[in-house]
């Protein structure tokens, strides 16, 4: 593009091109439009009605306009994410399950998770419809023992009891809101947390009966025995090799339910296998 030296000059520093001068003259000849006569009066009223904060805060208006909604959006979004992260994909049943937890008897709840045994074990451990029958127990037994009850009913029917008696003897069922499956409640029966510790390791069990042992591949080697402890009273000695406890193979992964009390310990002493009865 050819440089036009007149392009960047005018009356201040040089001369304008003819056309530019005409344009400048046309604009310069326009009538000066002044303020109306009541300008000062209106301005005075405007200043009187305006608050200083309204005009100084205007500088921060863009911030308030854009940042505040964004912050609000992030806050709400964060709350939702945090809430969903806490629930951990329990599909919305968690609130009801949590309300049920405190009233469930521990003796029923624990074996379902720890021992991974069938529900019959749990129901047999629970007192079946005792005189101190509480609503909480109704709920748990209803959820947990459909198989047991049906099996029991079959047995009873073999003894000649009518279907009406069978129905009356069936455990009461909990009425749940529509759409709620009772199974997730069972899954949440055992509340998490250290305060509800429901299992302990073999090492902890041995320590509880007075044995300090080390796991040596396939058995526990007794290092020392506390005097007058259940283990000492049963006759266990240093150097004994513990193979099983109550018939269960004991390794580092084995865990016992809370309240578990072993009756027998199988050991190897001087190449001889012995079964020792524990006394508490």
């Amino acid at each position: 593009m050819k440089y036009d030296k007149d392009k960047f000059t005018d009356g201040e520093n040089g001369t304008l091109s003819v056309d530019d001068r005409k344009v400048a003259e046309m604009l310069g000849n326009l009538r000066i439009i002044g303020a109306p006569k009541d300008f000062d009066h209106r301005l005075k009223a405007r200043i009187a009605n305006a608050s200083p904060s309204a005009h100084t805060a205007g500088r921060f208006f863009p911030v308030l306009r854009y940042v505040m909604p964004l912050a609000l959006f992030l806050l709400i979004g964060g709350a939702f994410i945090w809430n969903s992260a806490l629930n951990g994909g329990q599909n919305g049943v968690t609130p009801i399950a949590e309300t049920v937890q405190p009233v469930i008897p521990a003796t029923i709840a624990r074996p379902a998770i720890i021992e991974n045994k069938s529900v019959e074990t749990a129901t047999s451990a629970a007192p079946p419809q005792s005189e101190n029958f509480s609503p909480a127990k109704i709920e748990v037994t209803a959820v947990r023992q459909p198989k047991a009850s049906s099996r029991k009913v079959e047995t009873v029917s073999e003894n000649g009891i009518s279907s009406v008696d069978r129905a009356l003897k069936q455990a009461p069922k909990t009425i749940l809101p529509r759409g709620f499956d009772p199974e997730p409640i069972v899954a949440n029966v055992v509340p998490p947390g250290p305060e509800n510790k429901k299992q302990f390791t073999v090492r902890e069990f041995l320590a509880a009966i007075g044995i300090d042992a080390v796991f040596a591949g396939s058995f526990w080697k007794v290092g020392s025995v506390v005097k007058n402890s259940p283990a000492d009273n049963a006759g266990l000695r240093t150097g004994d090799l513990i193979e099983s406890i109550d018939g269960r193979t004991a390794d580092e992964q084995t865990v016992f339910a809370d309240g578990f009390k072993a009756k027998t310990i199988k050991i190897v002493r001087e190449s001889k296998t012995l079964v020792i009865d524990l006394k508490y």
Partner: peptide, 22 residues
């Protein structure tokens, strides 16, 4: 001349002085 609207021009002119004042 900027807005080609006299009433708007007067209004903004007053707003200009209000801002200067505060």
């Amino acid at each position: 001349r900027f807005l080609n609207d006299y009433e708007e021009a007067v209004d903004l002119s007053q707003e200009t002085f209000v801002r200067v004042y505060f």
